[in-house]
Every structure is written in C-alpha cells, then in structure tokens.
Simulated assay, not measured.
Amino acid sequence: MEKYFKKTSQSCHSCASTPTVDLEKNEDEQRNKRNRTIGESSKSTLTDIDNLQSDPGLRIPISEFSFNIRDQIRRSYLQKGPCQPRNHDCPKSKFGMKDRRFNPRWFDKYSSWLEYSIQKDKAYCLYCYLFGVEGRGKEDDEAFRRNGFSNWKKPDRFDLHIGGPNSAHNNARQNCEDLMKQDQNIHFAFHVQSDRTTNAYRIRLNSSIDCVKFLLRQANHNENISSVILKNAPENLKLTAPDIQKDICRAISLAITDYIKEEVGDSFFSILVDEARDISAKEQMALIIRYVNEKGQIIQRFLAIVHVPETSARCLKKEVEQVLSNYCLSHSKIRGHGYDGASNMRGEFNGFQM
C-alpha cells in the first residue's frame, strides 16, 4: 500500500487515518473476494467425482460445475442411480386435517428418476437435475429440478411432471440415455465422422500447401526465376489465365506421350480398354498400354481418354485405332488386349476384336 499512499506526519495522522483504513479495508475485501472466486473455480474443476453429494437436496447445481467435467459428473450420477432411501422413516406433514408423508412405494413406480432428500423432506427428479434447463418448462418442472416437491397429497403431479413426448422431463431423459450410450448415438457418430473428414481434408490441404511452399522456395533460390515470375512479370504475361493454363497442361501431356512412344519404339505391346460414363452422362473410353522396356521391366502407362458417341464394339474399335494412329503406334504390334466383362467387349461374335 505504500506505493499508492504517502506516509503522513504524526500530527495529521489522526485526520487522515479514517479514509486510509477504509481504503485498506475495501482492498482486503476485494482481494478476499477474488481468492474466494478462484478457490471456488478450482474446486469445481478438481471435484472428486467418486465422492459426489448423494442427497438431492444438498447437491450443487450442474451449472455451477466446470463445463469440462459436467458430462463426467452426469455419467457418475447415472451410474449410481437415483437417491432412493427406501427404509427411511419419512416425517409427516399437516395437509388440512390429515398428516401425510412421502410414500416409498413411489420409488417402484418411478424407479428410474424419482429421488428423495432426507435433509429437505422433498422429492426431486434425477433427469431434470442433470439436464434440465433453468427457466424452461412448467412450475412443477422447476420444483422437481431444483426446489423440491413436497405436496404429498397430490401424487398425480409425478405423472404430470413426466408429461408428453416433448416435455422437459422426457427431453432430459433422452439426453441421459444418449450420454450413457454415446458410441451408439447417431449424433455422436455423425460428429466423429465429421471430425475424420475434417482431419483428412486438413491433411490434404496442408500437403498441397507444403508442396507449393517447397516449389516457391526453389524459385526464390534461383534469382533468374524469381526475378521474372508472378509480381515481377509484365501485366499481360503472368501466364495465369485459364486458357494459358490449359495450353500448358496440353504441352505437358504431349511431352509425356512422346516419351511413351519413344520408350515403346517398335516393340510389341498390349492394350487395356474400358468405357465409362462421366458426370455429364457422356460416354468415354480409356486406353492403357502395357509393354516391356529395354531393361526387361513390365511398364503400364495411361495413354489417352476420349469421348465416344456410343459403346458398341465397332465404335470402340474405331476409336482405339484412331488413338493408336495419332501416337504412331501400329495395331499390328498388338499381342494382347484386355477388357471388362461387358458383352460388347468380350462377345465371341459381336465383341471387341482387333
């Protein structure tokens, strides 16, 4: 406190002592309040789940526990079951001219959720305590959730509390059942599947970004490249237009097919042909070539994919011959061909024949 308040002389100490004492008192109260708050927060986080309060009238509301451990606390209470002291001698209360009290036989009728507090002499609902929402539902729902129910002359309120399929009680019951069988719950399954899909997407995206970063680093290391690309290129010569990108892809495709032609040379080869329909409902044919290179290794290359007007054997044969002609490959060098099990491909008389 000395760095906030200057020391006063002895003569004026009496006149200044009162406000200084009040300020120090306020500081102490605020400090104690902060310590209390931190202590309570730590207590809720470090709750001993094995020693939770069993009496429903003395329990701490679920909302006051740390959010990270609420499901653990709920699961612990559900595993223990509702507090039902069947052998307790419940005290009597005056209702008009008659004495009434809690009847332990009600535990048999509402065995899964009905609880009784010995300390408060009141009935509670375990489901609503665990998953009830404050401020929602009827007044009776709030009584069973937090305040307790003690109107023993009206046991029909138990059935009214249960209500219809969409009542607060039944929604809380469904949440409890879902919590106890989370692995089988459809929402949990969708959540897990969504997490897996998201993780797989992130891996793919990060891999692509890493490849781009690697290529950019290679360009930065080469001053001859980095000085003429992207932002350093002329406005009309950045080579980023879609048509230019497609032309680059075509050039790469031609370079690859030229390499395949040179590798095949005059050797014998086999072909694999298959037809399929793309997303736009157009028929297309894929052609794969299989051969042995100079090192004696069996090589299999994807050669081309072309659209075809129909998938008859005659049409497919015509397209195959056209593709081989375009790449200067003679069909007389073919020593084998493979297809799928479709009748237009494997028929003895009307099937695909080279």
Results as ranks from 00 to 15, higher is better:
123 A>K: 00
270 S>K: 08
257 T>Y: 06
73 I>V: 07
13 H>W: 15
16 A>I: 13
200 A>E: 09
70 R>G: 01
309 P>H: 08
25 K>G: 10
250 R>A: 10
233 A>E: 04
185 N>S: 14
190 F>M: 14
236 N>W: 04
283 E>G: 02
181 K>A: 10
276 A>T: 01
132 G>N: 01
26 N>T: 12
275 E>M: 02
306 V>C: 08
79 Q>M: 12
92 K>T: 04
40 E>T: 14
324 L>V: 06
259 Y>L: 14
319 E>T: 07
65 F>V: 03
192 V>R: 15
60 I>L: 09
117 S>R: 08
257 T>W: 07
233 A>D: 03
43 K>A: 08
326 N>D: 06
291 Y>W: 04
192 V>Q: 15
282 K>E: 00
133 V>Q: 13
353 Q>Y: 07
28 D>W: 11
89 D>L: 02
262 E>K: 15
275 E>T: 05
107 F>I: 12
29 E>I: 14
36 R>Y: 12
207 S>N: 09
88 H>S: 08
265 G>E: 00
293 N>L: 06
318 K>P: 01
228 V>R: 03
111 S>I: 05
339 Y>H: 11
88 H>L: 12
323 V>A: 07
71 D>L: 07
180 M>A: 11
318 K>T: 05
171 N>Q: 10
127 Y>P: 01
2 E>F: 15
69 I>Y: 05
277 R>P: 00
187 H>D: 02
148 G>N: 02
154 K>N: 12
328 C>K: 09
159 D>R: 15
245 Q>K: 11
173 R>V: 02
145 R>Q: 01
186 I>G: 09
130 L>E: 00
267 S>D: 08
211 C>T: 03
290 R>S: 12
94 K>F: 06
39 G>V: 08
5 F>P: 07
66 S>G: 02
21 V>I: 13
102 F>G: 02
253 S>F: 06
270 S>P: 06
2 E>V: 15
172 A>L: 04
313 A>C: 11
34 R>A: 10
338 G>S: 12
83 C>A: 04
305 I>S: 06
244 I>T: 13
345 M>W: 08
32 N>M: 12
4 Y>S: 10
84 Q>M: 09
83 C>S: 02
327 Y>E: 03
308 V>D: 00
246 K>R: 12
273 V>M: 11
34 R>N: 12
80 K>Y: 03
31 R>T: 13
264 V>G: 02
330 S>C: 09
30 Q>D: 11
15 C>N: 08
64 E>F: 05
178 D>M: 15
333 K>C: 13
42 S>C: 10
168 A>M: 00
293 N>E: 07
6 K>S: 13
91 P>E: 01
54 S>Q: 07
49 I>R: 03
213 K>N: 15
162 I>G: 06
186 I>C: 09
26 N>S: 13
131 F>M: 05
286 A>W: 00
229 I>M: 12
44 S>I: 05
342 A>H: 08
103 N>Q: 11
134 E>R: 14
